[in-house]
Computed example of a mutant assay.
Amino acid sequence: MSLGLYLHIPYCFSKCRYCDFYSHPGERGVPDAYVDALLRELARFAPDAPLRPDTVYFGGGTPSLLSPAQVGRLIRAACPVSGAEVTLEANPETVTEESLWGFREAGVNRISFGVQSARDTQLRTLGRPHTARQARAAFAAARRAGFENISGDIMLALPHYTQAEFDETLELIEEGGATHISAYLLKIEPDSAFGRTPPEGLPTGDEAADFYLYAVEQLEHHGYRQYEISNFAKPGYEGRHNLIYWDCGDYLGLGPAAHSCMGGKRFYYPADTAAFLQDNAAPVMDGGCGAEDYLILQLRLRKGLSLPQYKALYGKEFSPVQLAFIRNCVKNGYAAFDGTTLALTPAGLIVQNSILAELL
């Protein structure tokens, strides 16, 4: 069984207008005291021997505000297995060729750039602190630093969005050498700046769905195979860390607001950095991970849900009513079903929540 380690870095230059992740804006680096606190928790979960995760993921916030030396301390303490995937999320304006070389030397072998759009006007609307030129420079610097596994994020259905904007963004990321692309629909979160003051020119739900289907088609055409609702990869470059989540594997999340699931038990740290630094934020138990979670997560994946595996793991089978609903989904182009595997099509992934509501 694979083990994933997630390290939350809650520091960033500024809060993007769509973001509701737990983070501290206005920072220009990560305090050593925070790295020390992560190391403390790592030792707490693995007191007698190194953790030896199969994947390590630095998420945020803006993990590229860490110094290469800090990243190196954390990777050495975790002691990932040989061949582990070690990912660092990075904002284009925060990296230099020197820092990228340093991250590579520290043990990072996968870099993920938050690009979102190739249009500077749109980036300003989103509250992103980088420019398209900086994004291009970051990709080029990453390649020169020796990164072969590079991911880029695209945000879809933005204010006043067009297919041409998607095409320009895909071109920037593809020419940058990306082997993996995450393409997300903009979601207006209530606790974000956009949630408090929604931007003008947002596409309708039907228009957003059309942008999504266009993105899937174009990404596939450019050699990025869809393997999950929002994730596309060149063959062999699927994100191994996130696949642990979607396959209901074990993962340990360290840091304020970080979530974990170990041995079927879920827990999380309170969203309180001060308490985390002071060793005053014990993880909170959050129930178990069972058949319902497995069904939901497997149907995010294009490979779909294996019914024999579902039965073997949880003793669950679909009822005649559920099977009739599935056949109706197939008839309407929302799913493929061969009697043993149920997989949603891109059209089905758009309405996944409605399909899950019926199946659950």
Rank of each mutant, 00 (worst) to 15 (best):
47 P>Q: 11
48 D>N: 14
49 A>T: 09
49 A>V: 10
49 A>N: 13
50 P>I: 07
52 R>M: 09
55 T>Q: 11
57 Y>C: 01
58 F>L: 11
59 G>P: 01
62 T>A: 09
62 T>E: 03
64 S>A: 04
65 L>E: 01
66 L>T: 04
67 S>A: 14
67 S>M: 11
67 S>L: 12
68 P>H: 03
68 P>V: 04
69 A>W: 11
71 V>I: 08
72 G>L: 10
73 R>F: 11
73 R>H: 08
73 R>M: 13
74 L>A: 09
75 I>W: 04
76 R>I: 10
76 R>L: 11
76 R>Y: 04
76 R>V: 13
77 A>F: 09
77 A>Q: 13
78 A>N: 13
78 A>P: 11
80 P>F: 05
81 V>T: 07
85 E>A: 07
86 V>Q: 04
86 V>A: 04
86 V>K: 00
87 T>L: 08
91 N>I: 01
91 N>Y: 02
91 N>T: 04
91 N>L: 03
92 P>Y: 06
92 P>R: 03
94 T>N: 13
94 T>V: 04
96 T>W: 05
97 E>R: 15
97 E>I: 06
98 E>Y: 05
98 E>G: 12
99 S>M: 12
99 S>R: 15
100 L>D: 00
100 L>T: 00
100 L>Q: 00
100 L>C: 04
101 W>E: 13
101 W>L: 14
101 W>N: 12
102 G>A: 05
103 F>I: 04
104 R>A: 14
105 E>H: 12
105 E>G: 05
106 A>I: 03
106 A>E: 10
108 V>S: 01
108 V>G: 01
108 V>N: 01
109 N>C: 05
109 N>R: 11
109 N>I: 10
110 R>S: 02
111 I>A: 00
111 I>H: 00
112 S>C: 11
115 V>Y: 03
115 V>S: 05
115 V>M: 03
117 S>G: 10
118 A>V: 08
118 A>L: 11
120 D>G: 06
120 D>T: 07
120 D>P: 02
122 Q>G: 06
122 Q>V: 15
123 L>G: 06
123 L>T: 11
124 R>S: 10
125 T>V: 14
127 G>N: 07
127 G>H: 07
128 R>I: 13
128 R>E: 05
130 H>I: 09
131 T>K: 09
131 T>P: 15
132 A>M: 06
133 R>C: 09
133 R>M: 07
136 R>H: 14
138 A>W: 00
138 A>P: 00
140 A>S: 12
140 A>R: 08
141 A>F: 07
142 A>T: 07
142 A>D: 07
145 A>D: 05
146 G>C: 08
146 G>H: 14
148 E>G: 15
148 E>T: 14
148 E>M: 08
149 N>I: 13
150 I>L: 13
155 M>N: 02
157 A>V: 10
157 A>P: 03
158 L>N: 07
158 L>C: 10
159 P>I: 05
161 Y>K: 10
162 T>V: 06
